[in-house]
């Protein structure tokens, strides 16, 4: 069963700007799905329409089989949204932000209190429950929005750049949290500009550019399209010329740094063997850039 199904979705804003030009997208139940695209591509517009914050111009959206227009109560009940920008009442405490949202979903008070505590604890905000929300740090505000989005136990959680501006430690704990939630059966759609995040978390991916989906596939099959890996090698002794090794494209970046393009068909063993023969001692090795990032740039440009 599809968690989200979108057919020929179009959006023209009031000022005439066409933000979505006929988007088709299916996200399977249980998936951890990445929605990627450059600034202004239309990601937030798409999420806005799915979560009833933006009126669509035409097209169909259904969530777990519930049409968003015809069966909107059932459809809305299935979704939790974490928006890109802070949108809670900054004068209320963390606790009442989450409690109110539970109330809007019709959850009776006793049950709402229990769920609110669970969600705030999961987001490590329980200690901050009585703090007025505008006094929370940026990362805490994001976590508060995640807690709020989960209070009614949605089957589909949509996160619009939840890790933007969040420190490394918290980002890692958010990754763990998202994986945990996904493991428990919640379908997740994530947008992010940190492609290594998408690469390590998500199983399927869509790339949107200028209001159109330009790529849809499984993460692994997308990555396997990359035939060349780029590495950076730090070497022990300075060189004046880049070594020449058949099959590999090597550039001397600084006198002790080599950039090497390694075709998948050749692998690394042959490279190291050849380097040893030329008495070049390698101290360390790292990826030049994230693999998904290279593909992304190729596709978007």
């Amino acid at each position: 069963m599809t968690a989200l199904s979108i057919q020929n979705l179009k959006k023209t804003y009031n000022n005439g700007f066409v933000a979505l030009k006929g988007v088709d997208l299916d996200v399977q139940r249980g998936d951890f799905f990445a929605l990627l695209g450059p600034n202004g591509a239309g990601k937030s517009t798409l999420i806005g329409i799915i979560s009833s914050l933006v009126n669509k111009t035409s097209g169909l959206v259904s969530i777990f089989g519930h049409d968003l227009d015809k069966d909107n109560v059932a459809a809305k009940t299935c979704i939790g949204v974490v928006p890109q920008e802070v949108n809670f009442n900054q004068f209320e405490t963390s606790m009442s932000v989450v409690m109110n949202q539970a109330g809007y979903y019709g959850i009776p008070r006793k049950q709402a209190l229990r769920r609110t505590e669970q969600c705030l604890r999961q987001m490590e905000l329980w200690d901050k429950r009585d703090v007025v929300s505008r006094r929370l740090s940026g990362g805490m505000k994001r976590r508060l929005m995640i807690a709020r989005a989960m209070v009614h136990s949605p089957r589909l959680l949509i996160l619009d750049e939840p890790t933007a501006g969040v420190d490394i430690e918290i980002r890692r704990s958010m990754w763990e949290m998202m994986q945990e939630v996904n493991k428990q059966g919640t379908t997740i759609i994530l947008t992010t500009h940190y492609l290594e995040e998408a690469e390590s978390l998500c199983r399927n991916i869509a790339i949107i550019n200028n209001g159109q989906i330009i790529e849809k596939s499984a993460m692994s099959s997308l990555l396997s399209r990359l035939h060349t890996d780029h590495f950076v090698l730090d070497i022990a002794r300075p060189l004046s010329l880049a070594p020449i090794i058949a099959g590999y494209d090597i550039v001397l970046n600084a006198d002790t740094v080599l950039d090497v393009a390694v075709p998948k068909s050749h692998g690394l063993n042959r490279l190291f063997q050849a380097l040893s023969e030329q008495h070049i001692e390698v101290l360390s090795l790292r990826n030049k850039s994230n693999r998904l990032e290279q593909l992304f740039l190729d596709l978007v440009q």
Partner: peptide
């Protein structure tokens, strides 16, 4: 101010 601070969105996403 519900509109201005955008927490109207909390009501719009929910089945209210």
């Amino acid at each position: 101010s519900t509109k201005f601070q955008r927490h109207i969105e909390e009501l719009l996403v929910a089945p209210v």
